[in-house]
Computed example of a mutant assay.
Amino acid sequence: MTSRATQKCIFISGAGRGIGRSTAEKFLARGYTVGVFDISGDEKWAEHHRNAIVGNLDVTDPGQWEAALDQFVRETGRLDVLINNAGILYGTSFEDGSFEQDSTLVDVNVKGVLFGSRAALPHLKTSKGQLVNICSASAIYGTPDMATYSATKFAVRGITEALEVEWEPFGIDVKAVWPLYVATGMLDDVRTDGTDRMGIRLTAEKVADEVVACVDHTQGRITKVHFPAGLQAKALYYASSVGAPFLNRFINAKLTTKRKIRL
């Protein structure tokens, strides 16, 4: 164990680019020690930073999760926050997708979160730390042309809500950040009715700001679990909490498809 960690020690999966990289950069700028891990090789952007611990991680491999987190804790002395950020998507009608695409999304977006959370648990119990999962506004209501992606984010929502209650006795705070469409490489080749109608307005930096606010948030008398990112996601999330189910369906359909939808 080294003495390099003087502030929070934060591990981020999928930190090579996009939301993960922007989040890592913001925490590094604060002087935090940040684990910058990715499968792509893009994580090497952080190798020059003295507070970064850089490594390769396939989030679908439990052994790699355990090894990466053990390495991080050996070098820092603790794990204060795990941010399950790694994720992928495909945007097309379900009919035009494939078994292989469905399987890959479930492996990365669901198993990756489960495996990371399980591997981090003993470290977070020691630090009484935080688990932050990057969810999506597509977990508010199923999103046409992103059915499998939306399903995986509903799973992330369920994991977050279950573990928030289950891990509270350990002193672990579990939360999720919910962006809508974000202008990152993940959407470069994606065009759906939803992206056309609502636009891709969020930047990775704006979502990273919400992740930082989520980590900084101190729970009050009423527990806050979900943190929508951006005005659109906030409006949809809070509207869904008070709207009737049929109305939520209608609003979501009107925003995400050009098809004629009955009320």
Rank of each mutant, 00 (worst) to 15 (best):
A162D: 13
E43W: 01
W167C: 00
D188M: 01
V132N: 02
S117M: 01
D80M: 02
L89E: 12
A120E: 03
D188K: 14
D189V: 06
K44L: 10
D216I: 05
A86I: 05
K254C: 05
E210K: 14
K44S: 15
R262N: 07
K26F: 03
I88L: 08
V215N: 05
G194F: 05
A5G: 08
I88R: 09
V174A: 01
S241T: 13
E161C: 05
F72A: 02
G116N: 03
L69Y: 04
G35P: 00
K44Y: 09
N252W: 13
A46H: 04
R249I: 00
N252Q: 14
S136Y: 01
D42F: 06
Q7L: 12
V165D: 13
L202K: 13
L114K: 08
L255W: 07
M146F: 04
G171I: 06
N51Y: 05
E205L: 02
R78V: 09
A46D: 01
N252H: 14
I10P: 01
G158I: 09
V177I: 00
D193T: 12
G158M: 11
F227M: 00
I12D: 05
G41R: 09
G41Y: 05
G230C: 06
I159P: 03
V54M: 00
T23L: 00
T256C: 10
D38S: 12
E43H: 13
D145N: 14
L202N: 11
E95F: 12
A155I: 06
V36D: 04
G16S: 02
H49K: 14
T203K: 07
S40Q: 03
D70R: 15
I53N: 08
R191N: 11
Y32H: 14
G220M: 09
R4S: 07
F27A: 07
S240P: 06
R157E: 10
S22E: 13
P144D: 10
Q7S: 14
N133L: 03
D196Q: 15
V54R: 01
P62T: 04
Y90S: 12
L236P: 03
K254P: 03
I261T: 15
F94H: 10
G20F: 00
A162Y: 11
A155C: 11
S138Y: 10
G112P: 02
H217P: 11
A155D: 04
V59F: 02
T257Q: 02
A137G: 15
Q7H: 13
I53G: 09
V207P: 02
L131S: 12
T60H: 05
R221F: 12
V81I: 07
S93Y: 06
L236R: 11
R262M: 06
V113S: 07
E164K: 12
N56P: 00
G63I: 07
